[in-house]
């Protein structure tokens, strides 16, 4: 089995993010591997351990992605491709999907694993659109994967009515949720080894395509302004005798907030 896994470098959401004049203030931001993609990498490495699958990751954009790709190598990924091209600066999900389509078509892959969304945009579209472009089956929001044979997977999907058990024929695209696994921490030795491994950096031309073919000049949508989100402020905190404070709060819920 040959697996292609997508990894995006994104802003660290645990740090404060400020907006000024309609744009995000770059100062003080840090960049990390997208949380869901880390789960995608873990899923990939587990499948490699079970079946001997060949593993390749692809990362689009982000500037210097050496750190996050090395981290994935240390987790067990064998090959890393980084697509970097100024034409991709305004890429939307559809453009990312077109680039991934090119990568897929050159590699004879059986399975694409993506995180179900990226924490910078929270769009959750790219993997699903890629499957449409490739004409492949797709299961999104996956929380479990089992290999049936080299042509079929059994995946669990967290759906609205409960957990759906889906048998999917390969080649296919799956997008995984954070609940699927606990990503392993890369070990020192792995990180050292990773430094020696090559990262294949290419632009669109090296990928055998062009900005025109991908449609880079015409994103279907673009962010024109960022704004601060409305912050909830804290109200009153009650400490002391549980019986007393609880009675007090219930009284306020009834008389002040009028919600009970």
């Amino acid at each position: 089995m040959k697996i292609l896994t997508t990894v995006k470098k994104v802003v660290d959401v645990e740090l404060n993010i400020h907006v000024k004049d309609g744009a995000i203030v770059e100062d003080g931001l840090q960049y990390v591997i997208n949380a869901w993609d880390e789960n995608a990498v873990e899923t990939t490495v587990q499948l490699k351990e079970q079946t001997g699958a060949e593993t390749t990751l692809v990362s689009i954009g982000g500037g210097d992605n050496t750190d996050i790709i090395r981290r994935c190598y240390a987790m067990g990924i064998e090959r890393g491709i980084h697509i970097e091209d100024p034409a991709l600066d305004k890429a939307d999900s559809f453009i990312y999907a077109r680039v991934l389509q090119k990568v897929f078509e050159q590699g004879d892959y059986d399975l694409v694993i993506t995180g179900k969304q990226a924490q910078d945009t929270d769009n959750g579209q790219t993997g699903i659109i890629l499957a449409e472009y490739l004409g492949l089956p797709c299961v999104s929001n996956v929380i479990g994967v089992e290999v049936i044979d080299d042509k079929h997977l059994k995946v669990s999907r967290a759906g609205d009515a409960g957990t759906e058990i889906v048998e999917v024929e390969l080649p296919a695209v799956i997008t995984v949720d954070v609940s699927i696994n606990e990503p392993r921490l890369p070990q020192m030795r792995g990180l050292m080894m990773a430094k020696k491994k090559k990262i294949e950096v290419m632009d669109l031309a090296a990928l055998g395509t062009s900005a025109e073919e991908i449609g880079c000049a015409a994103p279907k949508s673009e962010v024109i302004e960022f704004m601060e989100s409305e912050k909830r402020s804290g109200g009153r905190k009650f400490e002391g005798d549980p019986a007393e404070v609880t009675a007090q709060v219930v009284e306020l819920l009834a008389s002040e907030a009028k919600v009970i």
């Binding site: 959401v13 024109i224 704004m227 601060e228 989100s229």
Partner: peptide, 10 residues
């Protein structure tokens, strides 16, 4: 970005 910002998208 996990609800940290709001975007206007054209």
């Amino acid at each position: 970005i996990t609800n940290k910002v709001v975007q206007k998208v054209k």
